[in-house]
């Protein structure tokens, strides 16, 4: 009984922190379950994928309502993230858990470094932006300007036209593999990819990445579920906790000194990376 409540409480904490710091739940859930509760790494990844889908679906609906996400761009890149997630979901069952833990340690270290480097700048929000973002492409069925538009024209939004679609596709494939192997949403790859490589505005990239996370994680979660890699007794309370925590976190975001919180969190991430690395080394 106590363990179920602790899982929900841990998920709640991960949801609050994830929402405040602009991180998906996955980067927090996997260490919480493996280091905190002694859950095997692969089972923790399966549970984390469920949590990632729940938070993504909740936020993506709001992003669409606010016209912040580019549905066409998301659907193009989803072909590659979902393919990567399918491949990653299959590979995850072949790799030793120590290798996965080592990869996760590297991801944690990279995330901590990125947060530290970002310093006082705005975090990439996992919750919907406060203001409406005019980032979506034109409405479904609305006419194109050119008579036979290229794919880039078709997925363009107001004031921007995505570039380097090949690089975007390749990077999305990698993000899908990463998501499936480590149980994360992959926003840490997709947002910079869309923003820096494809020239998509940051707010649109963030919203579109969030929209894609659900489908990406679902592709690998199906493999985990059907191969018996998701424990419903652990996934249930943890996912409910993460959902509630993300709701609370999005409301606290304007009242909390996020910069200080982020610096503290960098330390937590670094410590967790060391623990994961030790687990990988054995």
């Amino acid at each position: 009984m106590i363990v179920g409540l602790l899982l929900a409480a841990g998920g709640f904490g991960a949801g609050v922190f994830g929402s405040l710091l602009g991180l998906g739940g996955g980067i927090l859930i996997v260490p919480l379950l493996t280091v905190g509760f002694g859950v095997p790494f692969r089972e923790a990844v399966g549970v984390s994928l469920v949590c990632v889908i729940v938070t993504s679906s909740a936020a993506a609906g709001v992003y669409l309502e606010r016209h912040a996400a580019n549905l066409r761009l998301g659907m193009l890149l989803e072909v590659f993230t979902a393919t990567g997630a399918l491949l990653g979901g299959l590979v995850a069952f072949l790799l030793p858990e120590r290798v996965l833990a080592g990869l996760f340690a590297a991801l944690l270290a990279y995330t901590a470094f990125s947060m530290l480097r970002r310093g006082g700048s705005q975090p990439v929000p996992s919750s919907p932006p406060a203001a409406d973002g005019p980032g979506a492409a034109r409405d479904v069925g609305a006419p194109h300007e050119p008579s036979s538009p290229s794919l880039a024209d078709e997925i363009a939004g107001p004031g921007y036209r995505p570039r380097r679609l090949g690089a975007g596709a390749g990077g999305s494939l990698g993000a899908g593999v990463l998501s499936a192997l480590l149980g994360v949403g992959g926003g840490i790859v997709k947002v910079p990819l869309m923003h820096l490589v494809m020239d998509v505005p940051l707010k649109v990239a963030t919203a579109t990445s969030n929209l894609m996370i659900g489908v990406t994680a679902a592709a690998s979660a199906i493999v985990y579920l059907l191969r018996g890699g998701i424990d419903p007794y652990i996934a249930g309370p943890t996912a409910v906790g993460v959902f509630a925590g993300a709701l609370v976190g999005s409301r606290l975001a304007t009242r909390i000194h996020v910069r200080l919180l982020r610096l503290l969190f960098v330390g937590v991430l670094a410590l967790t990376a060391v623990q994961m690395a030790m687990r990988a080394i054995g």
């Binding site: 679906s57 669409l64 409405d139 409910v240």
Partner: peptide, 25 residues
Amino acid sequence: NVDARIARILAVGTRVAVTLLATGS
């Protein structure tokens, strides 16, 4: 309308899923 419809699907689906998970928990 499409964005609104999809947003509604996501909102209702999430509520149903979380309600079931909470009940089971």
